[in-house]
Design a protein around this nucleic acid. Structure first.
Length: 302
DNA sequence: TCCCAGGATCAAG
DNA sequence: CTTGATCATGGG
């Protein structure tokens, strides 16, 4: 496990956690009680402990049990990374070389399907930084407030009802999410009316779920893949954004023009059930800042 | 001022 | 089935 890399890799599972140096904080309702917890890692990628600091109004064995289980699931601690590294140890560069540098980077799981879908819709034609900013405003304006014994307050992600009752123009004014407001409201209304049941998508095949999702407003191939990967947990889903499109077409298709749809197909075909993970490692690699044809890519930060 | 961001959509070829 | 323009908004 590499906690820092995992929490800072701009995954689209849910709004970015609050980070304080080496610890990262999130809030989750467990056994009916809002629980604020901070994670820190002890040890290295191969031998580690995850330290959990908890703040909540009441604590019992059930909450502790659920919290441990929740953390393990959200961080993907059960994923067999060794199998991923070994299966593709002979894969062409740079993927195999990221296995040492990004060792312990894990795919995060969304806490809720609705949150995952809305957050993915916010990602369209947007920077990671700004989509997180919009999500924070969304939580502050429409989400349930949680207060803690240490005096801190935190806003959870809104329920579908809260956004279904809002108007697009109101959302735009309060969160500056722009044209994404209309699909956010429409999808929320589909859910509250019972015309869209996200849980049922988990039982579908990739193709079935994809075609259902593409009928939703504001949901195209990339947003659908994000939701299927981080929300539903379909590992064959490989979201193709501008970074993945650039790095894959350059590395595997040498200047031949290739559409984003073909890029996603290629990743699914080459990496199968590990396509989502391959995408995660390539995304991090491309976004970090590399040299291509003498030109610099990426943000080059961190 | 123009360009870009974890794109979707619709009209036209 | 592909391509191009357009869509809000903030940051480089």
């Amino acid at each position: 496990m590499n906690l820092r890399e995992t929490l800072l890799s701009a995954q689209t599972s849910e709004p970015e956690w609050l980070g304080y140096g080496a610890t990262f904080t999130d809030v989750e309702v467990l056994d009916g009680t809002p629980v604020k917890y901070s994670l820190g890692q002890l040890g290295d990628a191969d031998s580690f402990f995850i330290n959990i600091d908890v703040v909540c109004s009441r604590i019992n064995e059930e909450i502790v049990r659920q919290l441990k289980s929740h953390v393990a699931r959200v961080l993907g601690l059960q994923d067999d990374l060794a199998d991923f590294y070994q299966t593709y140890s002979d894969e062409q560069e740079p993927l195999s070389s990221t296995f040492s540098r990004l060792r312990g980077l894990r795919l995060m799981r969304a806490t809720s399907l609705y949150e995952s879908l809305i957050f993915s819709i916010l990602s369209q034609n947007n920077s990671a930084r700004r989509m997180n900013g919009i999500a924070r405003l969304l939580m502050q304006c429409y989400g349930p407030r949680a207060e803690f014994p240490d005096g801190s307050t935190y806003f959870l992600f809104p329920k579908p009802e809260a956004l279904a009752n809002a108007t697009p123009s109101e959302l735009r004014a309060r969160t500056s999410m722009g044209y994404r407001a209309k699909p956010v409201v429409e999808v929320s209304r589909l859910i509250t009316r019972g015309d869209l049941r996200l849980e049922e998508l988990g039982a579908c095949s990739y193709d079935e779920a994809m075609s259902t999702l593409l009928d939703l407003p504001g949901v195209g191939p990339k947003v659908a893949d994000c939701f299927l990967l981080y929300g539903v947990g379909l590992w064959e889903a490989a979201p193709v954004d501008v970074w993945i499109h650039r790095i894959v077409s350059h590395l595997y298709f040498k200047r031949r023009k290739i559409t984003r749809l073909k890029t996603a197909e290629f990743l699914r075909g080459r990496f199968g059930a590990w396509a989502g993970y391959a995408q995660l490692y390539l995304f991090d690699y491309a976004r970090r800042g590399i040299l291509v044809d003498g030109k610099k890519w990426g943000l080059g930060k961190r």
